[in-house]
Computed example of a mutant assay.
Amino acid sequence: MKILAVGMNYAKHNKELDGTLYKPEEPVIFAKPDSALLKDGKPFFIPDFTKQCDYETELVIRICRLGKNIAPRFAYRYYDAVTVGIDFTARDLQRKFRKEGLPWELCKGFDSSAAIGDFVSKEELPDIQQIPFHLDIDGHTVQEGYSGDMLFAVDELIAYVSRFYTLKIGDLLFTGTPSGVGPVAVGQHLQGYIQERKVLDFNVR
């Protein structure tokens, strides 16, 4: 199982990071190792190598078929479920790496940095590009997104990454975060929702 993720896929998030409503020419893809996966409501422990660990709330797509070089018009056949996930980011390290032109792996792929909730069958949801989602911390909504605002749609992403990686059953695709990211703190309670359906629920330690 591999975890693929998309950077800079919402214009307003790009502005909050870089000050511009930037759209990349092609999707920005990075990977996380399987040791990054955090599931089943287990707590997230803030690592000691970062002074600012940010949440990034995202829709996560579950791959259900083996595929390579998938045409965009057939991409919908290759995923069967969606959930809310958190792409935890060591923001201070990311700033340092970006300034120095270095890879993102250490600030994005550390242990437990890919939290996921319970999956919802895509058949239970509207069009994949019409899904609202949000994150609550301690009962207050801190980040909201709508899949229709993605710069690159889900089917485009599936087609694009399958040019480089053979997609396998159980692979996960984090589709990018909207604006509103921020740091987590010890003792916080995080809950993620698709529409008004709670799918993610865990604590920060």
Rank of each mutant, 00 (worst) to 15 (best):
I70N: 00
F30Q: 03
R62E: 10
L38S: 06
D48M: 04
L93P: 01
A36F: 08
I128R: 03
K32H: 12
G67M: 06
D118Y: 06
L37H: 14
Y55R: 07
R77I: 06
A90Y: 00
S121F: 05
S35V: 12
R77M: 13
L93K: 11
K99P: 00
R73V: 15
N69A: 15
G109V: 07
T83G: 09
K39P: 04
R62S: 12
A114Y: 01
Y76P: 00
A115Y: 00
D80C: 13
G101R: 10
K42D: 07
K68W: 01
I86L: 15
L106D: 01
P72L: 06
K32M: 12
E58Q: 05
D48A: 11
D111I: 13
E123P: 00
D92V: 02
K96L: 05
T50W: 05
G85P: 07
D111V: 15
F44N: 07
E100Y: 08
K39C: 13
L93E: 08
D34G: 06
P126N: 04
R98Q: 13
V120T: 12
L125C: 11
G101I: 11
I63A: 06
Q129V: 04
R77P: 00
E123H: 11
F97M: 15
P72W: 03
F44K: 04
L38G: 03
I116E: 03
R62P: 02
I128S: 05
P72Q: 13
L102W: 02
L59Y: 09
E123M: 10
F110T: 08
L102A: 01
E56T: 14
E100D: 12
T50V: 06
S113C: 03
V82D: 00
R98G: 00
F49P: 01
I63C: 07
E123V: 08
N69P: 03
W104D: 02
T50E: 02
E124M: 13
R65H: 13
V84T: 02
P43D: 12
L125G: 07
S113H: 00
K51F: 08
V120E: 10
D40N: 15
F88I: 05
G41L: 07
Q129Y: 11
R62T: 09
R95C: 10
E56A: 10
R77Y: 09
L125I: 14
A71G: 12
D48N: 12
D127A: 15
L125R: 10
W104R: 09
R98N: 13
I70P: 01
K39M: 14
K99V: 02
D40E: 15
R65A: 11
E58D: 03
